[in-house]
Design a protein around this nucleic acid. Structure first.
Length: 510
RNA sequence: CGGGGUGUAGCUCAGCCUGGUAGAGCAUUAGCUUUGGGAGCUAAGGGUCGCGAGUUCGAAUCCCGCCGCCCCGACCA
């Protein structure tokens, strides 16, 4: 008997919805395509923010904030950028409402002379500021970051994975030349790789996107790709070298040491609330979410076995002092987050709520534990042993002494499990396109999923690349990236038979 | 935006074919019992049956239109 009504094997998309709901992460809002992020989901995002922000600042970036609304004319400056985003833009056209025939409508007399767009990303308005802030080579590099909400009018939305409005971090930097900008671009890629693996226990493959998957306006786009439990790939973070495209469009120039005016090189990079979807589909099981301890809003939850009797006070005191002790510890370079759940509800119900939310360590402490100076707990990532819930009992002193280690072990176990899944489900033995068709052209067997493929290719571009894209699309596949780790030599291109120049990752994707 | 599915209580759903004043389980609230583990009994509250128009004496049920959600596709840093 699992805590969720649907299992992953029965219906993966339904299971995903169930976790979002039952782990209390988010719910649909009355606003189409947008969600209400609930405390456990927001807490997870706040942990992601806290750690990522620290790493970004440690590398010399400062935060700032730009407005939600961008003048339409700003957006129109970079042609490829426009082409990429124009189709999914929310536009603000009026500044007043009026009762017309009993209905509240935009007042026709209050149309904006210049419409505003709700930012889908902020390159354009930030570039405008950069053109004023950058005067001299002494101003470079300029390394800034903002935490913001953005909006893209998506046709098809899915909680956390693709919502109309989402939260993210967007880094924007300006550099004197390509070499320096590329160092930054690769730094951001490595930031996302290490953050994803260390902090979210989510193994990824990092690499460069093919030409047809680039960010609109970018010269080179890099991504980290994570494998979900249904075998699909999730692009979990991107880093772009923008060359001088935005510098040209926005006139970002600096006076170099020789006194000449030189175009700057810019980068941008982002990671969003989509990561939470990745955490769900990487670590979730049929009992709900298993939150990676480093990112869990509450790492150790204590459920006292209260019985509505006078001795409850003593038990509460035992638990409260335990929480206080635990909160003095640290793990993952942050204070430990222990929590005493004294909600007036049945302990068993509370226990299952925390199982579904995926609190890493759930302690169930009764009067007997208190009397014996013990702590009884379950490890959420290894909840069951056969049909039974596996619980552990240790002395209070031992529990406190081992708590941080227990959390770090759990983190490592979650990572190892996900890493094994990733490593075991990438096939590198496809030599021809027919091999791919044979494998991906057939239905998954019961309980099976098709992972990714690493294949060699000659890196076609333009029309030739479009044709490759179409052949893959027929199999519902896309090119994810060219992994940074490349083999020493290459065979023949799987698409053309020509000598290959690169190994790429192919997968079905979210 | 195209194809398919779906929409009835907070949740899961029955009722619809064959029109006759709204149902179950779980959840909620109250009381009693129970207490080392998703408790039991009793009672109560809760729904303009997605929205609108139509057929009809009468519509959750039949017809038409629209909308939301889910899946597939198109699109998608």
């Amino acid at each position: 008997m699992h805590a969720l009504k649907v299992t992953r094997a029965e219906d993966f998309p339904e299971w995903y919805q169930a976790v979002v709901r039952d782990a209390d992460l988010a719910e649909l809002s009355p606003t189409r395509g947008s969600m209400i992020i609930k405390p456990w989901g927001m807490g997870l995002w706040e942990r992601i923010q806290g750690e990522l922000d620290r790493r970004i600042k440690d590398a010399g970036h400062d935060n700032y904030y730009f407005p939600l609304l961008i003048p339409l004319a700003f957006f129109a400056k970079e042609a490829e950028h426009v082409e990429g985003f124009a189709k999914e833009m929310a536009v603000v056209t009026h500044h007043r409402l009026k009762q017309i025939d009993g209905e509240l409508k935009p007042d026709p007399d209050a149309a904006l002379t210049e419409p505003l767009i709700i930012r889908p990303t902020s390159e354009t308005i930030i570039g405008d500021a950069f053109s004023r802030w950058v005067k001299s080579y002494r101003d470079l590099p300029l390394k800034l970051n903002q935490w913001a909400n953005v909006m893209r009018w998506e046709m098809r939305t899915r909680m956390f994975l693709r919502t109309a409005e989402f939260l993210w971090q967007e880094g924007h930097t300006v550099h004197a030349d390509e070499a320096d900008a590329m160092v930054e671009t690769m730094w951001a890629l490595e930031l996302y790789r290490s953050f994803s693996e260390d902090f979210l226990a989510m193994p990824v493959i990092h690499g460069e996107k093919p030409e047809n998957e680039r960010f609109p306006g970018a010269v080179r786009t890099y991504s980290i790709e994570a494998m979900m439990q249904d075998g699909k790939a999730l692009q979990a973070g991107t880093s772009h070298y923008l060359g001088t495209h935005f510098a040209e469009a926005q006139n970002i120039r600096y006076q170099d040491k020789e006194g000449g005016m030189t175009l700057a090189h810019t980068t941008s990079w982002g990671m969003s609330t989509r990561m939470i979807g990745g955490v769900i589909m990487t670590h979730g099981d049929d009992d709900g979410l298993r939150t990676p301890p480093a990112a869990a809003p509450r790492q150790i939850v204590i459920v006292p076995m209260l019985r509505g009797k006078p001795e409850d006070a003593e038990l509460k005191e035992y638990c409260a002092s335990l929480v206080a002790e635990l909160n003095k510890l640290s793990a993952f370079s942050w204070p430990v987050r222990a929590y005493l759940d004294i909600k007036d509800a049945r302990p068993a119900d509370k226990r299952w709520d925390w199982v579904r939310r995926g609190a890493p360590i759930i302690c169930e402490i009764g009067p007997r534990d208190a009397a014996n100076g013990q702590v009884t707990f379950i490890k959420r990532n290894a909840l069951r042993e056969g049909d039974k819930i596996k619980s552990h009992s240790v002395s209070r002193a031992d529990f406190i002494a081992q708590a941080a280690k227990l959390l770090e072990e759990t983190q490592a176990e979650l990572f190892a499990e996900a890493k094994a899944r990733l490593d075991n489900n990438i096939r590198a033995d496809f030599k021809t396109f027919a091999d791919l068709e044979t494998y991906y052209g057939t239905e998954d067997k019961e309980g099976e999923f098709k992972g990714w493929a690493r294949v060699h290719w000659a890196r076609p571009s333009g029309d030739a690349l479009d044709k490759v894209g179409e052949r893959l699309k027929a199999l519902k596949l896309t090119i994810r990236n060219a992994p940074a780790a490349q083999p020493a030599s290459y065979g023949a291109c799987i698409f053309s038979g020509e000598p290959a120049v690169e190994e790429i990752l192919i997968a079905r994707a979210y």
